[in-house]
């Protein structure tokens, strides 16, 4: 018990109110950031971001438009190099790594504006996600010998399994760009999962979905966590979704964390209500 308390102290020291759920507190967080910040010219897009995400946590990152949420994802995946601070993935620093290296270290993502390989088939999109787990050197690619068939079959089987997880097996041979919007979002998640990540980042996964698609998405996010035993971090404007499935939530405004905690704490936080909801109305008027 004492040990546990000590661990809790050590492992999750960063936020005053940690968003790491109980079942993960005695483990290293899958993802930690320390005083992370980035400036674009004179603009400080993110500043003093210190968070920790547990190994099997569903965490939410919310905030008004332009708060810096997508920028945080771009920092975590090393699309941008941070101006300040560090990122620890599975206990290892990701400084000076490239985006593809960081993915191999265990972080996968989807994009706010869907980025599929539109001209490739649905199946091939997932196979591209499996890239680093397919053992197929250039010689066997070219000659179709030396284990080509077995490596392709293994890739195909795993890709079909992932598609089945999202009930998309029947679309396997369709062109990815021709899928309906909701299916494209699911495919992007399937492709990210194919890289065998320890944490998956979802950037506004429910954007543009109708209520029934959104509730299916919620169910899928829970299933991803339960089946693959990985962490999920999501950016979302749909408060119903966020409050329903997230165990920990971090609220950003103007690049700074204004609140952190459980859904209940966030809901009743006056700062959040004022800053976030006030802004949201403004933003909605803009749109």
């Amino acid at each position: 018990m004492c040990q546990m308390a000590e661990n809790k102290d050590r492992m999750v020291p960063l936020p005053s109110k940690s968003i790491v759920p109980e079942r993960d507190v005695d483990k290293t967080p899958i993802l930690e950031t320390h005083h992370l910040g980035i400036d674009f010219g004179g603009l400080t897009a993110v500043d003093e971001l210190s968070i920790a995400v547990g190994r099997t946590e569903i965490a939410g990152l919310i905030g008004p438009n332009g708060a810096g949420k997508t920028t945080v994802f771009n920092l975590l995946t090393n699309v941008y190099a941070p101006t300040r601070g560090t990122i620890m993935l599975d206990g290892k620093s990701t400084a000076r790594k490239t985006t593809d290296q960081v993915n191999r270290m265990g972080i996968a993502r989807t994009f706010q504006n869907i980025r599929l390989f539109g001209k490739m088939s649905v199946l091939d999109n997932v196979k591209v996600g499996l890239h680093n787990s397919i053992n197929q050197p250039l010689v066997s690619s070219i000659t179709r010998l030396f284990g080509y068939s077995s490596s392709e079959k293994k890739a195909r089987d795993e890709a079909m399994e992932l598609l089945a997880f999202f009930k998309m097996e029947d679309m396997a041979n369709k062109e990815a760009g021709s899928l309906p919007y909701g299916a494209q979002r699911r495919l992007e998640i399937a492709r990210a999962l194919a890289t065998h990540p320890g944490i998956i980042l979802l950037d506004e996964p429910a954007a543009g979905m109708n209520p029934s698609e959104t509730s299916e998405l919620m169910e899928n996010i829970r299933r991803i966590r339960d089946n693959f035993s990985i962490a999920v971090m999501l950016i979302e404007h749909d408060m119903n979704l966020v409050m329903n499935i997230c165990e920990g939530i971090c609220v950003l405004d103007h690049g700074r964390v204004i609140a952190k905690g459980s859904p209940e704490e966030i809901k009743s936080n006056p700062k959040v209500i004022e800053a976030y909801l006030g802004k949201k109305k403004e933003a909605n008027r803009d749109e």
């Binding site: 993915n103 191999r104 994009f111 490739m120 591209v128 197929q136 690619s141």
Partner: peptide, 23 residues
């Protein structure tokens, strides 16, 4: 093949290709 898919993926969407671990 694996190599060809990676190459086509880079052409179609470089940022996405990087995000799934393609060098």
């Amino acid at each position: 093949s694996k190599t060809g898919r990676a190459v086509t993926a880079i052409r179609d969407n470089r940022i996405a290709a990087e995000s799934v671990g393609i060098n």
